[in-house]
Design a protein around this nucleic acid. Structure first.
Lengths: 197, 197
DNA sequence: TTGTCAAGGGCGAATGTTCGTTCTACGTTG
DNA sequence: CAACGTAGAACGAACATTCGCCCTTGACAA
């Protein structure tokens, strides 16, 4: 009886917490908000988590794990077109990262929280460093095939691609209007600009 | 006596508030933190601002005004190279927007806060819509000169450019390592990718 | 089958703290 | 002396967290 029930309760709490945090941010969400959303009492929740900070850390960590998984899944995959990389990472077809506007909103909150939590910041940098490696590898393979000028460090291109993803997430979370197809279209156009001067 | 002194006090409070908010976020900053940073008493601060929310709104609004000004300054300017647009907007030479890591951090906090404040969200969308118009205009002029394929709506390209800026800000704020020159370099490489397939 | 008991999950009022805000008394200045 | 700014103690509300009690559950003895 215990094992699976305990895990289910934990999930119930984390899911409720995520909904609250998406709606109101970490620090503007009170424990009472969270308890109401989870339909649980204070005593019950505190049996599973030691403090509110623990719950914040757990939800944030889970979200980052999803991001890491989304990038790791592309590692070693047959090298797609370079803008397909963006597609993948925008999660047009890959649910975890881009799930919906809620995921984007939550990630923005995580960024903000990482600005004041050293441990969260460390974990975030870790995840992004790994992702940079994966994307950098894809870029390098394109360079070997001559589809991209080879005299620029692959990491620099990877940084730009990942910044595009972050920027897209911001637009989806904050501004609302973020159509992946239109975005891809714009990027495609940008990628065909001739060298300057 | 009154006029300029009042304005100076207001500035003193807003500057202190900004420092606090950058350090700890809006809601994890207490009034006492703020009072200590401003070296003022509660009574003094509440003479200038009605509530903590007013202070949050004022600092956020000020930051957005700086962003708007940075974009507006480029309107009607002689059309630079398309990656120069990115330079401008990254603020390599334009202090207000990119000032430093602190500005980027503060903007991330503003994004997060906009997720729960309708009025701030509205103001943010307003500013970004205007910026989109400016950048879209620059893109359109490039299209007229044949420097960019003309069969794509300028706004779509503008969205990508602005997402790049947002993404760059995230990286500067959160991950620390964000060298504008390297970024520009990576983007330059990306912009010379031949058409796919 | 039925009665008993120990264990533990769950509850929600109570707790002490900290929050944002207000109020009154005290300089300071023109 | 009047008027204005400022300070800091004081206030109620709301916060995160704790604590003692209830109820359910499963094993076991009768």
């Amino acid at each position: 009886m215990p094992k699976e029930h305990l895990e289910a309760r934990r999930r119930q709490i984390l899911d409720a917490a995520r909904r609250c945090f998406v709606r109101n941010g970490f620090h503007a969400t009170s424990m009472q908000d969270l308890l109401a959303e989870a339909e649980l009492s204070a005593g019950a929740v505190y049996r599973y988590f030691g403090s509110k900070d623990d719950i914040i850390a757990a939800t944030a960590s889970e979200a980052l794990a999803e991001v890491a998984a989304a990038f790791a899944a592309d590692d070693g995959a047959p090298p797609p077109g370079l803008d397909d990389v963006v597609d993948l990472v925008l999660g047009v077809e890959r649910p975890p990262l881009s799930g919906s506007r809620e995921s984007a909103r939550f990630l923005v909150q995580v960024w903000a929280e990482a600005l004041r939590s050293p441990s969260l910041s460390a974990r975030l940098k870790e995840v992004m460093a790994e992702a940079r490696g994966v994307v950098g590898g894809l870029v390098a393979r394109h360079q070997e095939r001559g589809q991209l000028s080879a005299d620029v460090p692959p990491e620099q291109v990877a940084d730009v691609l990942m910044a595009l993803v972050d920027g897209f997430l911001v637009r989806r979370a904050v501004y609302g209007h973020a159509d992946p197809a239109a975005f891809r279209n714009g990027l495609r156009a940008l990628m065909s600009v001739p060298a300057p001067r």
